[in-house]
Write a protein that binds this DNA or RNA. Structure first.
Lengths: 124, 124
DNA sequence: ATTAAACTTGAGAATGTTTATCATTTTTCT
DNA sequence: AGAAAAATGATAAACATTCTCAAGTTTAAT
């Protein structure tokens, strides 16, 4: 990857704010600095950055893909209504439902662990 | 929810085959029995069934949403290449990476736990 | 510094997925 | 059987994401 101002700006936007933005939200923020930046550029760079492991993609089966600048081990708590993504630390997983209700007032309805990688067929 | 033949067929398709199909895949199968069924009907019913907790939506940030007829506790292993979704039993999580490599030849690159529910703002 | 190759961009078209609309049909309840 | 509620098929619309390509940047080697 060569350096580019736009990619740098996009990275900073995602890194500096824990809102787990969608591509559209990154676009809106990036336009403040680069009014002519195109949405395609934002998508292209978000994907490149996550392919390089610098950002992480977060999926939620409701609404758009989101991006996370935190790459250390933590979990995500996703509101089915407003679709915001909240961080959950490892320790908060013990006694999950009660703890999340006490701490965040978050009513857990289900959780899902997904493991990503390459299957034996595709490795060939 | 009233009874409908089409919804019943859709439910059976998802329940009877562990491929974790996309809406499009369900549509193709449903057309064998109901050649005039519309894709909209498939989406409508898959969403209704998962809102009622009868099916589960699976997201993967690559490709389309998928649906799962299994509602007991288990995890998903998603190939970043072909995007198929494989089931992982609870026990297989202990010694995760080595075990999944031994058993499935699956190269883990990252995993993500996401908790879904309703946040304190939206509960109002 | 100049230059060529590789990379990146903005603009917009194209694709793909999912939802909404609505007249008609099916199901449910009496 | 008949009215009300729900579901359907067809299609349009909305939304999210990727692709294309000419023009502009960055890089590394002269």
């Amino acid at each position: 990857m060569n350096y580019s101002q736009q990619r740098n700006c996009i990275l900073e936007i995602v890194m500096s704010d824990p809102i787990h933005p969608t591509a559209e939200q990154v676009y809106e923020k990036a336009r403040l600095k680069y009014p002519n930046i195109s949405l395609g550029t934002v998508y292209r760079n978000l994907n490149q950055l996550s392919e390089h492991g610098i950002l992480k993609k977060i999926c939620s089966s409701y609404g758009s893909v989101r991006f996370d600048g935190r790459t250390d081990a933590h979990f995500h708590m996703i509101c089915k209504d407003c679709q915001r993504v909240f961080d959950v630390e490892l320790g908060e997983m013990l006694g999950l439902e009660d703890k999340l209700m006490d701490k965040f007032g978050f009513q857990v309805s289900e959780y899902e662990i997904s493991i990503q990688g390459v299957c034996c067929d595709c490795k060939k």
